[in-house]
Each structure stands twice: as structure tokens, then as C-alpha cells.
């Protein structure tokens, strides 16, 4: 092994004599999401949560483009509330930079009022004693809401008059 052999991009000879090279995989993916997800993500920037409704009356949030069981094409559109109920949750003790909050928080499945399905997002609470299935939560909009799921900064507990977080 000579230094001349180590002439590729980032190639190097380690102290133990092994030949090393970096391999950094990165692909610039982008999505065109179509009329249904597109309308949902755009609506969020205007503080509206859109849903699709199937023939059997099921209200899907996030909106489904096709009914998972029947394949029905879903284009009947309604708006639902920006407040709802926690269906399930999991604690995030050590968030990384890509996550909605930079401090410990709860991942929650929220069923918004008027919806039959639940959506995943972050709930801003300080510890596990502050989150429970069935609690009421509402959307906290991002300060400068761009179209996209990050238009919802996170969810927050709904304060009940005369009490603490429900």
C-alpha cells in the first residue's frame, strides 16, 4: 500500500495500514403529493384541517386518497376541528434535531373532533404524568405556517376552566 493508491475522493490510509474511503448516500427526493394530500397540506397553512369522507360516512384525517378497505376514490371534502382527543401516546425522552420539539415530549395519536381516524403528531407536555389517553388537546399553529405538516408546530393540552390540564 502506497500513498499513491489513496487518490480517490476522501481515500486515506489509517494508522493500522487499512485503506479507507467514505460512502455518503444522499438522494434529493421531493414529492408531488396529488390533489388530496396537497389540499390538506395547503389548508394547514391557512389554519384549516381538511378531511375526506367516504360513502359509508367515515371521515379520514389526515385525508385518505383511497379507502383502505374498498379502494373507493375519496374526494368529498370537509373541514374538521383543530381540537380533539388523545387516542394513544408514547414518550419521546431524547428528541433529535429533526423532531417537532427540542425537549422531551409525547408522540400522540389525536382524533380531532369530527374525524373517525387519528393522526400522529407531537404533544408539548413536560412529563409522562401530564399525558393520558382521552385527554383533550388542540393544534398549536407554527408562527410562520408554510404548507406542510410542520404548519402544525405541535399539539398542546386544552386547559379546562377552573382546573389544570385535563
Amino acid at each position: 500500500m502506497t500513498d499513491e493508491m489513496a487518490d480517490g475522493p476522501g481515500y486515506a490510509i489509517a494508522d493500522d495500514g487499512s485503506f479507507t474511503a467514505p460512502l455518503n448516500l444522499a438522494y434529493p427526493y421531493s414529492r408531488t403529493v396529488g390533489p388530496i394530500y396537497g389540499a390538506f397540506l395547503t389548508g394547514l397553512a391557512n389554519h384549516k384541517v381538511g378531511a375526506t369522507v367516504s360513502a359509508d360516512g367515515t371521515v379520514f384525517v389526515p385525508p385518505a386518497e383511497f379507502h383502505a378497505s374498498t379502494g373507493e376514490r375519496l374526494d368529498n371534502w370537509v373541514d374538521v376541528a383543530n381540537e380533539g382527543e388523545v387516542v394513544s401516546w408514547s414518550w419521546e425522552a431524547d428528541p433529535d434535531d429533526s423532531q417537532p420539539l427540542n425537549r422531551p415530549f409525547a408522540w400522540v395519536l389525536v382524533r380531532l373532533d369530527g374525524a373517525d381516524t387519528a393522526m400522529l403528531h407531537a404533544l408539548d407536555v413536560t412529563d409522562t404524568s401530564s399525558v393520558r389517553t382521552g385527554m383533550r388537546v388542540r393544534v398549536r399553529w407554527a408562527a410562520d405556517a408554510e404548507p406542510g405538516i410542520h404548519a402544525i408546530a405541535c399539539f398542546e393540552p386544552v386547559e379546562i376552566a377552573g382546573g389544570g390540564p385535563s
Binding site: F19, L23, P28, T32
Partner: peptide, 18 residues
């Protein structure tokens, strides 16, 4: 295929070392 969602040309050309 929905090539507009990615970059097929470079996805096919990963420069694997050695």
C-alpha cells in the same frame, strides 16, 4: 415510475469506493 419524485440518474450511479 414517478421519476419527478427522485433523481434516477444519480440513484443509479452510487460511487461505491473501490
Amino acid at each position: 415510475e414517478k421519476q419527478s419524485d427522485g433523481n434516477a440518474m444519480w440513484a443509479l450511479s452510487v460511487p461505491v469506493p473501490f
